[in-house]
Write a protein that binds this DNA or RNA. Sequence first.
DNA 1: AAAATTAAATCAATCGTTTGATTTGATTTT
DNA 2: AAAATCAAATCAAACGATTGATTTAATTTT
Lengths: 226, 226
Amino acid sequence: MIDNGVKRVTEKKGVPSVGELARAKLLQAALDMFGQHGFDGVSIRQISDSAGMNVSSISYHFGSKDGLYCAVADYIGAQIIGHSHAPVTAAEEFIKTQSLDADDAMNHLLSIVENMMEIMLPDSVETKRWARFVTQFQLGEDARDHWLSKNPFHDLIAKLVAIVRSEPDKTLENAIIAQTIFGQVLVFRVSRMSAKMALNISSFGPEEVAQIKRVVFSNIQKLLSQ
Amino acid sequence: MIDNGVKRVTEKKGVPSVGELARAKLLQAALDMFGQHGFDGVSIRQISDSAGMNVSSISYHFGSKDGLYCAVADYIGAQIIGHSHAPVTAAEEFIKTQSLDADDAMNHLLSIVENMMEIMLPDSVETKRWARFVTQFQLGEDARDHWLSKNPFHDLIAKLVAIVRSEPDKTLENAIIAQTIFGQVLVFRVSRMSAKMALNISSFGPEEVAQIKRVVFSNIQKLLSQ
DNA sequence: AAAATTAAATCAATCGTTTGATTTGATTTT
DNA sequence: AAAATCAAATCAAACGATTGATTTAATTTT
C-alpha cells in the first residue's frame, strides 16, 4: 500500500542541483516530523511549511505522502547501514574465517553493541532522529514489509553468541539471547522518558552513555559465561 | 492539553446502567483501535462505528477524543496494577522487612519479571491489547505527563537488584541494571515483528513464552552474580 | 526555447465537535 | 393505576476546519 512513484532527477557529477536541494530539505523536515508525531500525526502541509516549500513540491518530488514516508525510511536505513559498516563487516569476515575463538567473538559482539548504542542512545546527535523514526515506523501497520522493520543486527549477534557459547549456530536459545541483548539497548530508546525518570537524569550525555555501556558490557559478559 | 471533562453517571449498587454499558463498549473499542493505529490513526467515527454507536456518544460520555484517550489510559493503568498486585505487594512487604536475604530478593525479582512477561508477551490474551496501547502511548508527545508513562515496576526492581547485589539502595548502577532487565522483556513486545522473524516463530505461544522466560531468568541470575 | 521547479488555487473527502430533536426509563404527581 | 414530568441517553444532521491530492499558471534552471 506504499506508493513509491518518484520523479527522479537528472543528476550529474557531485553538484547538487536546485531540485536535489529541495528534495533533501523536504526529506530532512519529514524525517524530523514523522519521527516526532508519526505518519498520521503530521500533514504534508506542515512538512512543506517546515521545509519552507510549497505543498505540491512533495507530490512532485516524492509522488505522495506515502512516497515521502518510504523515502525517509530508505534514507534512514542507508544511514544506519553506513554508520555501522565497520564493526559489522569486521564481524562478518571474522565469522567467514570459521574461527571459533570465543574471545574474538565476544570482542566483535561488544563492538556491534557499542555501535548500536551510539546510534540509539545519544540525545543530541542526528542519530537520535533516526531512532525516533524507526521506533515510530516499527509500530506502523502498513509498512511492515519494509526491510527497515527487520533488525539488521540480529543474525550477526546470534551467530557471535553461538560462537562465544561454543554451540552450533542458530539454536533458538541463541536467537533469544541475542534478542535480550538487543533489548538491553533498545529500552533506553523506546522507554526513554521512563528511563530518564528512573535514572533521575535529564539527558543521555556522554557520561550517562558511558556508564550504561559499562553495565551492558558487564551484563553481556556475565550472561554469556558458562 | 488533555481534556478530561466527563459527564459522570448517577450509579447505584452494582447494577451497570445503560449508559455505563455504552461507555464500556466505547472504551473497549477505543482500546483496540488506539492500540493498533495510535491516537491520530483512528477517527472517533471509526471507534463509534466499531462500538455500534453514534459519533456524538463519544463527546457525551468522554467529553472529547482526548477525554476518551485519557480514559483508556486510566483503565489500562488500573488493569495492569490489578494484574500485578500480588507479586508487587509481596515484594514491597519483603523490602519493608529490611531483610537482606539475596535469595529471597532474587525470588521476588523473578516473580515480578514473570508477571511482566505475562502482561507483555502473549499473543492471544487481553493483556496484548494493553501492551500495544501502552507502547503507542509512550511514543506520544502530549500525554507524557500521564502517570502511565512511568514504569511502575522500576523502583521495585532496582531495590531488589540492590539487595541481591548486597549494595546500598538506589545507586545509579542498580537503576541501570533494573532498566536492562526490563528491556529484556520489553524487546519482545516493541520489536515484536522483528523478534518473530529473528526467532523464526509465527506467534508467542505458551512454549515460546516458556523458553523466553527460561532464558531471561538465566540471564538475570547470571548478570546479578558477583 | 525547453525542461524543471515552484506557487497559488481548488478539489472531494474526512476530521473532531456541536446542535436540536427524539427516545428511553424511571420517578413523581394526580 | 394512569398521567405527567424529567434526566439520561442516543440519534441524524450539520458545522467549520483540515486532510491528501490535483490542477493551473508563473517562475527558474538548463
